[in-house]
């Protein structure tokens, strides 16, 4: 698990990107109920590392992030793309210890 930032650095319903030791990137989100999620940051449809900059909300009650490039929605808890079944981004394990957010490998 890699510590990435203080929990207080996260704004509810907005993401940040973090760099992992292996050079890969995660998008870390805080939802309004205080849950932290971490998904691969690379948008599979454009190849750009931008998922952390998408809008966070819900589709039929399911928390999602919407890619800022072509607007597909990804489920925060599973990484599954709701608009293009069969496509998904990696889900990273995440935990908060002593107010610090830590992210593992998918």
């Amino acid at each position: 698990m890699t510590p990435v930032c203080e929990l207080s650095a996260l704004q509810p319903e907005r993401g940040v990107a973090a760099l992992l030791p292996d050079g890969s990137q995660v998008a870390v989100f805080l939802t309004h109920d205080g849950t932290v999620h971490a998904l691969g940051n690379v948008d599979p449809f454009s190849g750009a590392a931008v998922l952390s900059r998408g809008i966070v909300g819900d589709r039929g009650g399911v928390p999602v992030v919407v890619s800022p490039i072509y607007k597909q929605a990804f489920e925060l808890s599973t990484g599954k793309c709701l608009d293009e079944p069969g496509t998904a981004v990696p889900v990273h394990p995440v935990r908060v210890a002593d107010g610090v957010v830590q992210v593992g490998s998918p």
Partner: peptide, 10 residues
């Protein structure tokens, strides 16, 4: 209702 989305938030 709910938490909003990329349509209503902007």
């Amino acid at each position: 209702r709910g938490r909003g989305c990329d349509l209503c938030k902007p």
